[in-house]
Write a protein that binds this DNA or RNA. Structure first.
Length: 484
DNA sequence: TCTGGGGTCCTAGGACCC
DNA sequence: TCTGGGGTCCTAGGACCC
């Protein structure tokens, strides 16, 4: 999902930034260690400056809830993280009464009651589907689109320089709103970092109408002067503190700072940000989704877990999710790690342990990997500990098609594994997730939602809390919104 | 009682080899 | 045995993103 933020390596194919500023060939050679310094003379001075638009869904999760529940409009609304832990999305009304991103639910009970804040558990099936609709709509407006996260996309508007870009962006907003119900903000700039700045500024400034074009220098100067360096894409808390120590607190100061000094402080990443703020594009649009290099599935438990059996069941479910992702990208895993840990927010003794298994021949078999995690858990489990979280990490992923066998690997078993997984994936695709699953996963649904009360047995402790989840309006027939 | 989950990239330092 | 330099590969930790 997050391939190309300022920390990512620069794609060698992308060097038009140098064209607009030939004096910076030196700079460019530092940006990418992998590529030779471009020969300035070989680059046409007429190479067009790229144009990026960043489209971002406003309070995306909350907006998704509003689409299906108009009574939430103009109300403070928040959406919670897993286990109803903390705030991960809030509407403007919720921001206005002081609710912050990441606030733990149990610390803001007062505000919630006082202002009658509408509170929702997160419903990723719904948000994922709404996201897909938004991206499909956006794709109508440009052939070059990078889906950057669930609620954001970069669009290349390279061919649109002859149009009024702000007008075009307003049209995009209108159609996305009409076709999906999601309100957006759009920032436009000659680099991704500037498009990001424009987007944030458009959101903040109510007079902007949700659109801001930062393609021209005067507009950049005035907006960057009012923009905190800490809010620039790629500058986190640590880097902001370092910059502040050298007297840099605004984005304008950062842009005009000595680029070598910034690089010394913030590595090559900082250098790129400065150049991007100057209008030299270092971060290319990445239209194709690269395969994951690592797949993680980990979750805090709804309630504390004490037994090895419960841990095994929880982890079997996490492995199931991770392996589905693995097979979707047609990879095989060579290294599998499992970890368990206590509640890090609780006083008292902490425990963390992990174990790793390597597979000589890569595998994508849920069955095999569950068996492997079971063995690992037996070695890292200690009795008498209150576990709060566990997870698995699949790494050293390589193409499944190229799995290599040694003399001792059982190739016949391997091809049977593949067939079995094909069948399982096909059935689950047709009939719904977990229609067919490995016995070790138990009977519980991973999500103890309000609607799962049919079972007579209580949910295992590890299952997630999600007491305030809305129905999956768009992805389950039973949950279709009824009108009338 | 109560605090998310899933990613990527960069750098420094150690191990090892020539 | 000592001394020196340079290269590669791997890993852990730090930082950042949504």
């Amino acid at each position: 999902m997050h391939k190309c933020h300022p920390q990512s390596q620069v794609s060698p194919a992308h060097s038009p930034c140098v064209a607009s500023a030939p004096t910076s060939a030196q700079d460019a050679s530092h940006i990418s260690n992998a590529m030779p310094a471009p020969d300035a003379s070989s680059i046409s001075n007429l190479a067009p400056t790229p144009i990026f638009a960043l489209v971002d869904g406003n309070s995306f999760y909350c907006s998704c809830e509003r689409v299906f529940n108009p009574s939430l409009i103009n109300q403070p609304v928040i959406v919670l993280s897993n286990n109803d832990g903390c705030v991960i999305s809030r509407t403007d009304e919720a921001k206005a009464i002081g609710i912050k991103m990441g606030d733990p639910l149990h610390l803001i009970g007062d505000i919630i009651r006082r202002h009658r804040v509408r509170v929702y558990s997160s419903n990723y099936a719904l948000y994922g589907d709404m996201s897909a609709r938004m991206m499909t709509t956006l794709a109508q407006f440009t052939p070059e689109l990078e889906v950057y996260s669930i609620d954001e996309a970069f669009l290349s508007l390279d061919g649109f320089a002859n149009r009024d870009l702000a007008d075009y962006a307003r049209e995009i907003r209108r159609v996305v709103r009409r076709d999906t119900g999601i309100p957006t903000a759009i920032g436009i700039g000659p680099t991704k970092v500037l498009a990001k700045v424009a987007n944030r500024a458009a959101k903040k400034n109510k007079r902007s109408g949700g659109v801001l074009n930062l393609c021209d220098r005067a507009a950049q100067d005035s907006v960057l002067a009012e923009f905190a360096a800490a809010d620039v894409w790629g500058i986190g808390a640590r880097s902001a503190a370092k910059l502040a120590r050298m007297g840099v607190t605004t984005a304008l100061q950062l842009r005009d700072a000595d680029v070598d000094a910034v690089q010394k402080l913030l590595t090559i990443v900082g250098r790129r940000i400065v150049l991007e703020l100057r209008g030299q594009s270092c971060l290319a649009l990445e239209m194709v989704q690269e395969d994951r290099k690592q797949i993680v599935s980990s979750k805090s438990f709804g309630r504390p877990v004490y037994t090895l059996d419960d841990l095994k069941e929880a982890v079997a479910n996490y492995v199931t999710r991770a392996c589905e992702k693995l097979r979707r990208q047609k990879s095989a895993c060579h290294t599998l790690s499992v970890f368990v840990q206590t509640n890090r927010f609780k006083d008292g003794p902490q425990y963390y342990n992990s174990g790793t298994i390597t597979f000589g021949a890569g595998t994508a078999s849920t069955v095999r990997m569950i068996a492997a995690t079971s063995g690992v858990l037996e070695t890292i489990f200690r009795d008498g500990i209150e576990y709060k979280k566990a997870g698995v990490i699949l790494s050293d992923l390589r193409p499944a098609i190229a799995v290599e066998f040694s003399l001792f690997d059982d190739q016949r078993q391997h091809s049977q594994d593949i067939k079995a997984m094909k069948v399982m994936d096909a059935i689950n695709a047709r009939m719904g997730r977990d229609t067919l699953k490995v016995g070790a996963c138990g009977n519980a649904s991973a999500n103890t939602s309000a609607s799962s009360g049919a079972a007579n047995t209580p949910a295992p402790a590890w299952t997630m809390k999600a007491a305030m989840r809305t129905p999956c309006y768009t992805t389950r027939w039973q949950d279709l919104l009824q009108v009338g």
